[in-house]
């Protein structure tokens, strides 16, 4: 399920519905509206971000989790970064702009409805550093119709990063 099967097997209508959801989500995260963002997730959401060990090509790549959350721990994380009294890293807040592209949508097995694969590029600027930087990765989301609308049930972000730059990752990808 983590890898794309290549061919979008869903209707254009379904494709558009998924695209709207992901665009709306990116806008909410760029606005740091975590309450509204959380509402786009299912109650049993899983959220994983991985980085990569650089290994010889013969051995093959190895991804390892740097974030691995369920709904409870994810809620803790966003409660912290969303509250100026509770965060140091995000006060003043990081400026972000998310670019979500190269969407592929396929049908997913129950209980989910779709698997959406996207490229993610997040421009990030902190403090008064003149140069922003980027997180880049491929994202796989499992989406499920829940409480009347399509929601994110499971997200895997595979970052194309090895040694992370400039401190700790304190934003949602």
């Amino acid at each position: 399920m983590d890898d794309e099967r290549g061919i979008a097997t869903v209707s254009d209508a379904a494709f558009l519905e998924v695209q709207r959801l992901l665009n709306r989500e990116a806008a909410l995260l760029d606005r740091r509206d975590y309450a509204a963002w959380f509402d786009l997730l299912t109650e049993d959401v899983k959220y994983v971000v991985t980085a990569r060990v650089s290994r010889p090509a013969e051995t093959g790549p190895l991804d390892y989790a740097i974030i691995d959350e369920d709904a409870d721990t994810l809620r803790l994380r966003v409660l912290q970064i969303g509250d100026p009294k509770l965060t140091r890293a995000e006060n003043p807040p990081t400026l972000t702009r998310r670019f979500v592209s190269n969407l592929e949508v396929e049908a997913a097995g129950p209980p989910n409805d779709y698997a959406a694969h996207t490229n993610l590029l997040v421009y990030r600027q902190r403090g008064t550093a003149p140069d922003g930087d980027f997180y880049a990765g491929r994202r796989r989301d499992l989406l499920r119709r829940d409480r009347g609308s399509l929601r994110i049930a499971d997200r895997l972000v595979r970052l194309d990063h090895n040694v992370l730059f400039d401190g700790s990752l304190s934003i949602v990808l």
Partner: peptide, 24 residues
């Protein structure tokens, strides 16, 4: 243990992120 360890003290740790900002 792994999830818990990373949640608090990993590259995106909720403890870590605040320390690093201040150390820098």
């Amino acid at each position: 243990a792994l999830k818990h360890g990373f949640h608090n003290f990993g590259a995106a740790g909720v403890f870590e992120q605040d320390d690093l900002e201040l150390w820098a």
